[in-house]
């Protein structure tokens, strides 16, 4: 699974992207966030702010209940501020 991080999520995690193999019990975006929080102090710091983090699965905005699978591209970021 390819993961991408943007804005302060990227800065806290310390990576712009990484490839991971989550355990089988990780089935959705919420589960993935909980699992990622255990990977490093940087991940823990970023995902401690879970309520402020939005996600996209395969480049579509995705609520926390969205299923995730091995070949998905999943991105985590703060609420958008373009325009």
């Amino acid at each position: 699974m390819k993961l991408l991080y943007f804005a302060w999520v990227r800065q806290k995690v310390g990576l712009a992207e990484e490839t991971v193999t989550p355990p089988p019990e990780v089935r959705d975006v919420a589960g993935l966030m909980s699992w990622l929080a255990t990977r490093s102090p940087g991940h823990a710091d970023a995902f401690a702010h879970a309520a402020q983090i939005r996600a996209a699965v395969n480049q579509d905005f995705a609520p926390a209940s969205t299923p995730v699978a091995a070949n998905d591209e999943v991105a985590f970021f703060p609420p958008v501020t373009g325009g």
Binding site: F6, A56, F61, A75, F77, V80, T81, G82, G83
Partner: peptide, 14 residues
């Protein structure tokens, strides 16, 4: 368009 892209396009300002 400008209202929607402010909240629905993945940009972040620092």
């Amino acid at each position: 368009l400008i209202d929607w892209l402010k909240t629905k396009a993945p940009f972040w300002k620092a």
